[in-house]
């Protein structure tokens, strides 16, 4: 039971703030359209408008992965989990 109560004690940990920032960046980068709606500088024939958004696909992937790792680490740190019973069957 202890692991359940410990998990939700604190709402705003430094990790969570950082995760929030990491997850907010893709919104800022892609939804602030007037910051990138132009042709120059081109890259390999692609106008800025297009390659900038291609770039954000990868940035978003990296940022989301970082957020995932941070959350997993915090979760593991909080739990000190006892070995869980293995889930039987159903895996595919």
């Amino acid at each position: 039971m202890a692991q359940h109560t410990r998990r939700t004690t604190e709402l705003l940990t430094p990790t969570r703030v950082l995760v929030g920032v990491l997850l907010a960046l893709p919104f800022l980068g892609t939804l602030w359209v007037s910051s990138y709606s132009r042709v120059e500088p081109r890259l390999g024939g692609f106008p800025f408008f297009y390659w900038y958004q291609f770039l954000w696909i990868f940035l978003s992937a990296i940022l989301t992965t970082c957020a995932f790792v941070l959350v997993q680490r915090e979760r593991r740190g909080q739990q000190h989990r006892t070995p869980q019973p293995r889930r039987k069957g159903g895996a595919r």
Partner: peptide, 8 residues
């Protein structure tokens, strides 16, 4: 951008 912000 639609599919990009789906991830967060």
């Amino acid at each position: 951008p639609y599919t990009i912000i789906v991830y967060p």
